[in-house]
Amino acid sequence: MGIFDFYLLETIINGVLFGGVLALLALGLNLVFGVIDVIWIAYAEIVMVGMYIIYYLNVVLGWPLVFAALASILGVGVVGLLVHALIISPLLDTPPINQLLATGGLLFFLQSFATLIFGAEFRNLGLSMPILQFFELYISFSRLLAFGTALVGMIALYLFLTRTYIGTAIRAVAQDREIMSLMGVNTRKVYLITSAVGGGMAGLAAILLVLQQDVHPFIGYTFGPITFMICVMGGLGNLLGGFLAAFIMSQIISIGSFYVSTELAYVIAFILFIAVMFIRPEGLFQRRA
């Protein structure tokens, strides 16, 4: 095995691990998208809120990282709840595009609010995560951690959706919202819970992102678009599809960055997304109904 192949292998492995982060990012959005049928265009900025929460509690107030991380999950969960209660809910009976645009306003708001409070500087936790070495392969520990957490988050969400009444109701709403009241389900409440859980997943993703990169007010632009693409490609509300799409995209980006450049790798990924939308608008992994 030549040295070149080793680098390629490392790239592929890192791609898989990066896929875990993307999958986790897509998870919360997918849930909200699939169940409430709204796109939080500000989703990446909501993740950013979690990153700033951790930064503020850990670095400024000196909380232990674990507590700061838990606060991120809870805090962003509350943000999700508020987004639904204050922005989406008044717009539920208007055209779906209005909901998307209103959360676009939220995007501007969160970006500039972060600038207002923390300034435009790049902030980080000042942690240096170890690099693991397996023979001649170097793997970033934070990525490995992110991958593991993504798996755990997925499984937890899966169990919640399949093993609890409210989780079953959340899946049911995504399939037929009009008859939910016949089941005695208060759709409003299901939406609020879904938004809170979606927010909580964003808070979880924030933990993993803040371990590997600096946070700044415009960080959402770096991973926001790819997250939307993954959700749609996987098929709305299809958690497994979203997971697979995350790994396809992450491999394209990882290997593309290796052979050409990061930007062109993203260009390829986005063009693939556009093509998929033309050929299979219901997503790559959705059974045609």
Partner: peptide
């Protein structure tokens, strides 16, 4: 699961 929804 459908029956479970009936017993929500």
């Amino acid at each position: 699961d459908n029956l479970r929804m009936g017993a929500f």
